[in-house]
Every structure is written in structure tokens, then in C-alpha cells.
């Protein structure tokens, strides 16, 4: 067990190191940020001064070592554009992204489970078929285009909800959140729905398949035979058993929601890290690109590590096949 965890940890460190080299060298080897950052009329001396100030005159490996040394002290470089530490820029915007991701997951679960249950209990009814067809469509719809259509319908045509930005926030336990103000909620509604769409389709599918599998089993028949109300059978006996795979899959999908927030944040001008990275790529703001990618990659490595370790604790077969 310990050996397994140590091996997985080493592997994670290796992946992170490889990623940092790829990202750093790749990002720094292409283009010259000086061309973009400095006034084209600037003379040679000015350009050289700026190059030195940003540390771009030193060899690449030296820049990398400097970067790694800095990374261990939480310094991932200063943004060329904002002239602020890259890590702080990201951490400033992270709560907005996490809030959006949380809201999207909430929408997916709150809408997805009842719809999936309904479709699973009455697969032949019109509603059941419509829900199933809708979930298939949900997998095919390009997220960014749906986002535009949501804006078109709810913001431009109907004028019910605001299309861009984050609304008023309140501070709760040191975090600023917009989920507790009416203005904030109206701003988060469209982006959250957009980001939730794919996960919603997934939850409906899982809930529907789970329900269809569970309903013919003996313990459900027994619960019915005991004379329990349909509501109790469905809400307690069926629901409890279909929740296990849904929780597992959603846990694994949390990371991908944050990655996909890039698209939603760009459309709805949501001030999170996804919008930041796209702006940084377009402005060649390298420290921010590198910091974002490394942070996201680290996040995924940690998620995967935790999942793997949990699985090996729960399922001894994983450990045995690893050891070979």
C-alpha cells in the first residue's frame, strides 16, 4: 500500500516536472514578448533595458532554473501586462471560477437527478423519451454556441437576465461570493446553465440507466410489497442506489468543469481564471500562461492522485495489478 502511494507520488512529481519543462520552454521559445510590450518607436537602449528588467536576456535554462527556484517560494513571475505577480492574478480570479463551477455542478445535480429518475421510471412515456433525446442532444451541442444562444434568448430577446460579468458579491468566511445576492444570482444563472449543460446530460444518462437497472430488482419489489408509498420507494430505495456512480463520476468531472470554464467565461465575460488565460495567450503574457497551465496541471495531478489512492484503498485488485 505504502509502496503503491510512493510510486504514484513519484510518478505525479515526474509528470509535473515534465509538464513544467514543456510549458516553460514552449512558451518562452516562441515569439519575443518585447515586440508586443514595448512601443514600436522605442530605441535600442530602451529595448535592452526592458529585456534585462524582465530577465529575457539570460539563457533559457537559466531562466528555467530561476523560474523553478521561484516556484518553490510561490513566485511564478510577474505578469508583463498587469505588472503584478502571476500567482496573485490567478488566485484573485480563482474564487469566481470555483463559484461558477460549483453553481454548474449544482444545476447538473438538481436538474439531472429528477429528470433522469423520471426517464428511468417511465422510459416509454413521452416525457421519458423527450428527456433521453434531450440528453443525447446535450452531448452533441457545442457548448460555446449554446452559450451564445442563451445570451440571445434570455439577455437580448427577452431581457430577463444580464449577459456579462459578475454581479454584486458579499463576503462569507473570507470568500467573496455572488451566490448570496439577487444581482449576483441573476448574473451567475446563464453561465452556470451553460457550463452545466454537458454534465447535466451526463447525470441524466447515469440516473436513467441506474434507475432502469435497479427498479426490477427484488429489494424494490419487496419494498413495494411491504406497502411503502411510491414516493418512499423512489426517493429512498432507488435514489440511494443510483447515487453511488453519479457521485463518483461527478467527483472525477470537477476538474474538467474548471477546464471547460475557459469557454463559458470567455462568452459571458466572467472574471475568472479561464478568461484570464485566453487574454494572456492573446497578449503573449507568458508568466501568466505558464502559471495558469502549471497550476491547472498540478490541480489535475492532485485530483488523479487522490482518486487513484482512494480506489486502491477501496479495491485491492488495483493494488495487485499495480504491483506487477
Amino acid at each position: 500500500m505504502t509502496v503503491f502511494i510512493i510510486r504514484r507520488l513519484l510518478q505525479s512529481v515526474l509528470v509535473l516536472a515534465a509538464m513544467s519543462v514543456i510549458v516553460f520552454v514552449g512558451v518562452y521559445a516562441i515569439g519575443n514578448p518585447i515586440d508586443i510590450l514595448i512601443n514600436p518607436q522605442a530605441d535600442q537602449e530602451e529595448i535592452e533595458r526592458a529585456t534585462r528588467a524582465l530577465g529575457l536576456d539570460r539563457p533559457l535554462w537559466e531562466q528555467y532554473l530561476h523560474f523553478v527556484a521561484g516556484a518553490f517560494t510561490g513566485d511564478l513571475g510577474r505578469s508583463f501586462v498587469f505588472n503584478e505577480p502571476a500567482l496573485r492574478l490567478i488566485l484573485d480570479r480563482l474564487p469566481a471560477t470555483l463559484e461558477l463551477a460549483f453553481a454548474a455542478m449544482l444545476v447538473a445535480v438538481v436538474l439531472g437527478i429528477p429528470l433522469g429518475l423520471w426517464a428511468g421510471l417511465r422510459p416509454e412515456s413521452f416525457a421519458g423519451k423527450a428527456i433521453t433525446a434531450g440528453s443525447i442532444l446535450g452531448f452533441s451541442l457545442p457548448t460555446f454556441w449554446v452559450g451564445l444562444m442563451l445570451i440571445l434568448l434570455f439577455a437580448v430577446q427577452l431581457g430577463w437576465l444580464p449577459a456579462t460579468g459578475r454581479g454584486a458579491t458579499v463576503e462569507v468566511l473570507g470568500f467573496r461570493t455572488s451566490l448570496l445576492t439577487l444581482d449576483g444570482l441573476s448574473h451567475v444563472a446563464l453561465p452556470a446553465l451553460n457550463l452545466a449543460l454537458f454534465k447535466l446530460a451526463l447525470v441524466i444518462r447515469l440516473a436513467r440507466a441506474g434507475t432502469r437497472e435497479v427498479v426490477p430488482l427484488d429489494y424494490i419489489k419487496f419494498a413495494r410489497a411491504k406497502g411503502l408509498s411510491t414516493r418512499r420507494v423512489v426517493l429512498v430505495h432507488v435514489l440511494k442506489n443510483i447515487l453511488i456512480p453519479i457521485v463518483t463520476v461527478l467527483g472525477l468531472e470537477t476538474g474538467s468543469v474548471i477546464a471547460f470554464a475557459v469557454v463559458t467565461e470567455t462568452i459571458f465575460a466572467w472574471p475568472g481564471i479561464g478568461r484570464l488565460i485566453i487574454q494572456a495567450i492573446n497578449q503573449l503574457d507568458r508568466p501568466v500562461i505558464v502559471a495558469y497551465l502549471l497550476m491547472t496541471v498540478s490541480m489535475f495531478i492532485v485530483i488523479n492522485l487522490v482518486v487513484d489512492i482512494l480506489y486502491s484503498v477501496l479495491d485491492p485488485r488495483v493494488r495487485i495489478s499495480e504491483a506487477r
Binding site: I22, V27, S256, A259, F260, I289, L293, T296, N304
Partner: peptide, 17 residues
């Protein structure tokens, strides 16, 4: 496969242009 496709593509295109 443990990384979402969009993140991998984002890394590569940020690097490659």
C-alpha cells in the same frame, strides 16, 4: 486521458500558436 481534452489542446496551442 486523465487530463481533459480542452486543457491539453490549450497547453499545446498556447505553446505553439
Amino acid at each position: 486521458l486523465s487530463f481533459p481534452a480542452i486543457l491539453v489542446a490549450l497547453i499545446l496551442l498556447a505553446v505553439l500558436g
